[in-house]
C-alpha cells in the first residue's frame, strides 16, 4: 500500500520544523525558503497550514512537461523531477493547480516534494503530529482528488 502525507492544520502550531527538516534533507541547508513544504500563517484566525504536493495520480505537472522529466516513483508513487532531463521551462509550475511545483532560479530547474524516497523528513520533524505518513486510502486524499476533478485540464472520465 502506498503511503501519503496527511496534514491536519488543526494540529499545526506554525513552528516550521518541517520546513527546516525539508531544506536540510534536500539542499543540506538550514533554509526554510528552500523547503518544499511551506507553512502558511493566518494570524487573524490563529491558524497554520502546512502545505505540499499531494502526488496526484493524474499529475498535471507530469502531463504538461514537454520533455518527460517528471515520472512516478514505482515504489512510493511520488512524482519526481529528473533534474538532468528538466530544461527549466517552468510549464509545470503554471500547470499544477495546487502551486506545489516551483522553479528554483539558482539551479534553473523545478523542484517539488518527492516524499524523501519514502521516509519524509517533515513527518519526523513535526512535534505535534500535524504531518503523518499513512496509507493513502485513509487520508483526505479523496477530498483532494474530488477537488482536483473540478479543475480543468483535468476532465474526468464520466463513467
Amino acid at each position: 500500500m502506498q503511503k501519503t502525507l496527511n496534514i491536519i492544520p488543526e494540529k499545526c502550531t506554525g513552528c516550521a520544523q518541517c520546513e527546516i527538516a525539508c531544506s536540510i534533507e534536500h539542499v543540506g541547508m538550514f533554509s526554510p525558503s528552500k523547503s518544499r513544504i511551506k507553512v502558511f500563517k493566518f494570524p487573524d484566525e490563529g491558524r497554520f497550514v502546512a502545505y505540499t504536493c499531494t502526488q496526484c495520480s493524474e499529475a498535471w505537472c507530469q502531463r504538461a512537461c514537454p520533455t518527460g522529466a517528471i515520472s512516478a516513483n514505482a515504489e512510493t508513487g511520488a512524482k519526481e523531477v529528473c533534474e538532468p532531463t528538466c530544461v527549466g521551462c517552468k510549464v509545470c509550475t503554471i500547470a499544477c493547480p495546487f502551486g506545489t511545483i516551483n522553479y528554483v532560479s539558482e539551479r534553473g530547474k523545478v523542484t517539488k516534494c518527492d516524499l524523501c524516497g519514502g521516509d519524509p523528513a517533515c513527518v519526523k520533524a513535526c512535534p505535534t503530529g500535524a504531518i503523518t505518513f499513512i496509507d493513502a486510502d485513509a487520508t483526505g486524499y479523496d477530498r483532494m482528488k474530488a477537488w482536483a476533478a473540478q479543475t480543468g485540464g483535468g476532465a474526468q472520465p464520466e463513467a
Partner: peptide, 12 residues
C-alpha cells in the same frame, strides 16, 4: 515564481 500554479487552481 512561487506557487504561481494556484492562479490556475483558483480560476479553473
Amino acid at each position: 515564481t512561487d506557487q504561481v500554479g494556484v492562479l490556475r487552481g483558483l480560476i479553473e
